[in-house]
Simulated assay, not measured.
Amino acid sequence: PHSDIVDIDRFAFETALVELASNVIQHAAAGTGITCVLSIHADDHELSARISDTGTAGAVTLSGPVLPEDLAESGRGLALIQMLVDSVHFERVGDLNVWTISRARHPLP
């Protein structure tokens, strides 16, 4: 366990991870249910996570964080994730959707 993670890194990474998992469950399941596998890694320099799921293939475009109109009811999740971490990657590998996120760690004050 890494109890030495700066609060802002922990908060940003956890928020991005919860948002990503939420999006996977909401959008990839298509009402049929899915299986997800989550792995998280922390070392002295970076926090990273990988989520793979058996959901339908998504048409995902990662072109940078773009927020929807102010009154839009959805569409903020991916932009929020991209603002909170340094790297977001999506690929379809066989029958799986695979997401990876990472955030560089700040040194302790």
Rank of each mutant, 00 (worst) to 15 (best):
A49S: 09
E73H: 12
E69M: 10
L80Y: 07
L17R: 10
G55A: 05
P65Q: 06
A30F: 00
H2S: 01
L38R: 15
D44S: 09
D86S: 03
L96D: 09
A49Q: 14
R105E: 08
R92Q: 07
A16N: 11
T61Y: 14
V85M: 10
T61S: 11
L108F: 15
A57D: 06
N23K: 03
I5K: 06
D44R: 06
E69P: 09
T32I: 04
T15K: 14
S74M: 15
D44Y: 01
V85N: 07
T100E: 14
E91G: 03
A104E: 14
Q82G: 00
T100Q: 09
G31V: 12
S22C: 12
A16K: 09
R103N: 08
G33V: 12
V37A: 08
L67A: 11
L80Q: 11
T56C: 07
G64R: 01
D86P: 05
V60C: 04
A49H: 14
L108E: 12
D44F: 02
P109F: 03
A12P: 03
S102A: 15
Q26F: 06
T54F: 02
H89C: 08
A42R: 09
S87N: 12
F13M: 06
I101N: 02
G58V: 05
F11W: 02
L20Q: 13
E91A: 07
V98T: 04
L20V: 02
R50D: 07
A72C: 14
L38M: 10
S39T: 02
G94E: 12
A28E: 05
I101C: 01
A59G: 04
Q82I: 05
G58L: 08
L80C: 13
A57E: 10
A72M: 14
V88I: 02
S74P: 10
H45E: 15
L84K: 06
S39R: 10
E69C: 07
E14Y: 05
Q26R: 12
D70H: 14
A42W: 04
L84F: 03
E14W: 01
E19W: 11
S52A: 14
D9R: 09
P1S: 09
E46D: 03
F11D: 03
V93S: 13
A57H: 12
L20E: 04
I34H: 02
V37C: 04
S22Y: 15
E14I: 02
G58Q: 13
L17M: 05
I34E: 06
D7C: 10
A16L: 06
S102M: 09
N97R: 11
S52Q: 10
E69Y: 04
E73Y: 15
G55W: 11
H106C: 11
G31W: 00
G33N: 08
D44P: 00
I5W: 05
D44H: 03
E91L: 05
H89I: 01
R76K: 10
A72Q: 13
A79C: 06
E69L: 07
L20H: 14
H106M: 12
